[in-house]
């Protein structure tokens, strides 16, 4: 009797959960669906009431017209280049620093680590004005350098994440290696990096998103259209295209696709990375 009761309750709860989840998914997914639908409509159907949800006829040409109206290919190449260099920079500087902070007891380590964590508290608005002045004096304004060079000099969040991960690797491995006569560099390269594949992928993904979706810094440092990144190009496209929503949505779809693909392939790492920051703080 009791068992029947609980299983009935269980089914009832599952049903409620499904109903609520489906409702939520529709609310959350609808803007995406509408973006896709608008992007494939002929212009006269865009401003049609009641709304036509399924485009008919499907106008694939919108994409070609939108992407050739402004040099989106150029923006894509620019964004790809900046993102790639940022990731490489973060991988080099952050893995090295994380290992140093995790395993080498050098003098002043704790103070430096404390300073590093302190930089996470610093809002980027405080440093952006002097950085702009510095980069202007270096002649770097309106080049891509200010957007990726800083990542070769660390990133507090990634260093913290990698350090936490490195600390979970048992030191016995290291002690064995030291008896073997390996130095710190060898240990770092031969033991820590190969064992930290998951953490490294997490860093790559977050670095990708930070760089690919960044709008504030490109807006400040870049002003000639041939150097635009995808988000900048999209913003410029908006002021140029005004009410051509089918073109704007087509461009948005293209801008959003790399992120969605990345998410599909590396879902697990997204979740782990975020969960790690949540728990450790």
């Amino acid at each position: 009797m009791r068992r029947y009761g609980t299983s009935f309750q269980q089914t009832y709860r599952t049903l409620i959960a499904y109903v609520l989840l489906t409702f939520g998914a529709i609310v959350f997914g609808l803007p995406f669906f509408w973006m896709l639908s608008t992007s494939l409509k002929p212009i006269e159907d865009v401003f049609l009431l009641p709304i036509k949800w399924i485009p008919n006829p499907i106008k694939w040409n919108n994409y070609i017209e939108a992407l050739t109206a402004v040099p989106f290919g150029r923006y894509f190449i620019n964004s790809t280049k900046i993102t790639l260099f940022s990731i490489i920079g973060h991988l080099i500087s952050c893995t090295l620093a994380a290992y140093g902070f995790a395993r080498i007891p050098f003098k002043g380590r704790d103070i430096l680590f404390f300073l590093l964590l302190g930089t996470m508290m610093l809002p980027s608005q405080v440093t952006i004005i002097p950085l702009f002045i510095i980069f202007k004096q270096l002649g770097w304004v309106n080049t891509h350098l200010p957007l990726y060079i800083p990542s070769f000099f660390g990133g507090a969040f990634y260093i913290f994440l990698l350090r936490q991960y490195f600390m979970t690797i048992p030191t016995e491995l290291e002690e064995a290696a030291i008896i073997d006569g390996c130095g710190y560099i060898r240990i770092f390269w031969d033991i820590y990096l190969p064992l930290s594949k998951n953490a490294l992928i997490t860093v790559v993904i977050f670095s990708f998103m930070g760089s690919w979706n960044d709008f504030f810094r490109p807006l400040i440092f870049i002003n000639s259209p041939d150097k635009f990144t995808v988000p900048l190009g999209l913003a410029g496209f908006r002021s140029e295209m005004g009410n051509y929503w089918h073109y704007l949505m087509a461009a948005s779809v293209v801008a959003v696709i790399p992120c969605i693909l990345l998410y599909f392939f590396f879902q697990r790492y997204f979740i782990e990375g975020i969960a790690l920051t949540g728990l450790k703080s």
Partner: peptide, 21 residues
């Protein structure tokens, strides 16, 4: 060796954070 490992990030802390701050 320790300073070597954290060199880039230490430069980053001073030149891209504390200095501008």
């Amino acid at each position: 060796v320790g300073y070597g490992f954290v060199l880039l990030s230490a430069l980053g802390i001073f030149f891209f954070n504390l200095g501008p701050m």
